[in-house]
Amino acid sequence: MNDKQSVSTTINGHVYTADCEPRLTLADFIRHQCGLTGTHLGCEHGVCGACTIMVDGRTARACLMLAVQADGCTITTVEGMADGDRLTPLQEAFWNNHGLQCGFCTPGMLMCATELLESNPDPTATEVRERLSGNLCRCTGYDSIVTSVLDAAEKQRS
């Protein structure tokens, strides 16, 4: 298990290269080797969605991948969303509609909502709920998150 393998990934436009134990999860690699702690771990067994990131343009749960599986991949984490200090319209919508309280689930919610709006710019509330049903939030009761996503969708369309 100590035979380390070289991993090289592009995260938020930077190339990160490190020697990793094969058992190192991608989440731990991103958080601790790359210092990108915006990706959160709420369960480490693939249920809560807090660790959701974009791998090659599609959402993935970083706790369910090994770092070595991400070799050669292009990844976006929550830190890669805002443009400098300008939040994206989706992030703004979460801010305006109280779509977060403790903020722990938020990175995963933002990733899934981004993917949803890319494929469906005009979702219904039910569609938003269904798309986010794999992401647990213990604080908000979800309604304000749904409102946030619908608000972002409307702003992006206009």
């Binding site: 990108l36 915006g38 984490t77 830190e79 939040l87 903020g103 722990f104 933002l110």
Partner: peptide, 13 residues
């Protein structure tokens, strides 16, 4: 909110 939304929060881990 802004820093939490940007992934700049600092939780215990």
């Amino acid at each position: 909110d802004p820093r939490l939304l940007a992934g700049r929060g600092q939780y215990i881990d």
